[in-house]
Design a protein around this nucleic acid. Structure first.
Lengths: 193, 193
DNA sequence: GCTTTATTAGTTAGTATTAACTAACTTTGT
DNA sequence: ACAAAGTTAGTTAATACTAACTAATAAAGC
């Protein structure tokens, strides 16, 4: 396994702290308190704080990747895959808002080169997955072909991200799933052949 | 005037610091060093650091607003306005990347309620401007009407923001203006009636 | 089977460093 | 003369991390 049980405890607690008040809330002190042991104990499980953050990113990258690949394996058309992905993501985010902070943490790590690169690589990977889905959709005839897959992926991911950002900034005061439906009905019109 | 000359110096220096290494690089120590005076001198011009950050946000909000309204006043069609706006923004960002960090600073202030609200209000305002431009475009017949202005604004702003984010995470290693052109040619197809 | 030896996972009590900010004093410009 | 703008030299609080130690459990040797 990638992580021990105790490491998973720590990742979970860290997720909660970040979800509550952002990355600045993730201090060794708060994290130890959240788990219920001493600060020093953290260092029995991770070399340092950066490794903790890095592990959080890895953990959720894998988690989301697994579900996405499940959806992609389905034998539906490209456009239906996009619909299912948007549905899954918005549902996941609204049921566990803490994840948003992590999945959208790009700006938080600007001072650390390694973390910043890790975040970039995750974003690139996601973009490639979407591009492949779109390409298949263009081939199966469900998605328009007069716009390149790269641009469609940007449009898809960008509008999705902005919607989630607005939700977060509004303190989650609208129904994200509903907004996701509305967004999708617009995107479907844009994507369809 | 909204700010004294010295306050403008401080805003400029702060912008530079944030642009270089993100918001975590904006410390009173670094800021004072950048300007070339002591830390304590900062407090002759601003009550505290939060007021400095808040002023930076205000400053660039106004700056961008002014140019945007200039573009909107033009008697061109809605779709042409969008094209000019995207051209202006991408040009502005690539010639002064530091501004990106500030304009896209949403995630950085999650721990501070007041700043977080200010950022949200700026985003809302921008969205409204885009919605108005799109609405006019729908009325003048240059923009499709089967998708609501709110969704088109989300698509427009979202894809624009994601492109800029990718550029930043890649350490500006592609031509943003060129990428902006490519994005626009895709968006134009999507928006046009 | 039972003692010795390691390991794991925790503790307490610190460290050095850095952050934002302030009080008291000095210089400068009009 | 005096207000504005600067300085020096600090304060307080927080941060990531470490040293030294311990109880409990597991492994090894005879």
């Amino acid at each position: 396994m990638k992580f021990t049980n105790r490491q998973l405890d720590i990742i979970q607690a860290a997720t909660k702290l970040i979800g509550e008040k952002g990355i600045q809330n993730l201090t060794t002190k708060n994290l130890a308190a959240e788990i219920g042991f001493s600060e020093a104990a953290l260092y029995r499980h991770f070399k340092n704080k950066n490794v903790i953050i890095s592990s959080i990113l890895e953990y959720y990258k894998d988690e989301i990747k697994d579900v996405m690949f499940g959806i992609i394996q389905d034998s539906t058309t490209g456009i239906l895959k996009l619909e299912k992905i948007i549905e899954f993501l918005f549902n996941r985010f609204s049921s566990n808002p803490a994840i948003i902070m992590i999945v959208f943490a790009e700006t938080s790590f600007q001072n650390d080169i390694q973390l910043s690169e890790q975040v970039h690589s995750i974003l690139k990977q996601k973009k490639m997955v979407f591009e492949q889905v779109i390409l298949k959709g263009q081939n199966d005839g469900s998605i328009r072909m007069d716009i390149q897959k790269e641009q469609l992926a940007t449009i898809f991911m960008g509008s999705l991200r902005l919607t989630v950002l607005r939700w977060r900034l509004s303190n989650m005061n609208f129904d994200l799933n509903k907004e996701g439906d509305i967004l999708w009905s617009a995107l479907a019109k844009v994507f369809i052949k």
